[in-house]
């Protein structure tokens, strides 16, 4: 038991960023990618999910992938908080480029300017991308 607690404390020290910077539809990669994020959270790692570039569109409400027989990503995004992943960031510049605002998104996000993201990313241990 003590060992597990220690292990968890050590794990907590590792910060893992998951960057979604590309469209998520049409292939299974984003789904498999988010599986890693959920697993990382289940391992008590400090997980931060970042949307930028085209990837910010993944957050849009009212996606209808089932019209092409594809799987909905929104439920997984909603599940992030269940897995204690509460740091969901969006690059401010990307959001401005797409003229989007957080109320158009399926989950609450924090808008962070690129220069600050650089500092946050640099303090991470691992950055996952797909």
């Amino acid at each position: 038991m003590i060992l597990i607690v220690i292990l968890r404390l050590v794990n907590k020290l590792k910060t893992i960023f998951f960057v979604i910077d590309k469209p998520i539809h049409g292939n299974v990669c984003s789904q498999e990618f988010l599986d890693i994020a959920l697993m990382a959270a289940a391992f008590d790692l400090h997980v931060i999910v970042l949307f930028e570039g085209d990837g910010v569109n993944a957050l849009l409400k009212n996606q209808q992938p089932e019209t092409l027989g594809l799987k909905q990503v929104s439920p997984v995004l909603s599940a992030l908080s269940i897995y204690d992943i509460n740091e969901v960031l969006v690059e401010k510049e990307s959001m401005e480029l797409w003229r989007l605002s957080p109320e158009q998104f399926v989950i609450p996000v924090t808008s962070v300017p690129r220069v600050e993201l650089s500092q946050q990313l640099n303090s991470a241990d691992v950055v996952f991308s797909f």
Binding site: L121, N122, D125, V126, V127, S129
Partner: peptide
Amino acid sequence: NKPIRSCF
């Protein structure tokens, strides 16, 4: 260098 970010 840490971290490593592969940009695909």
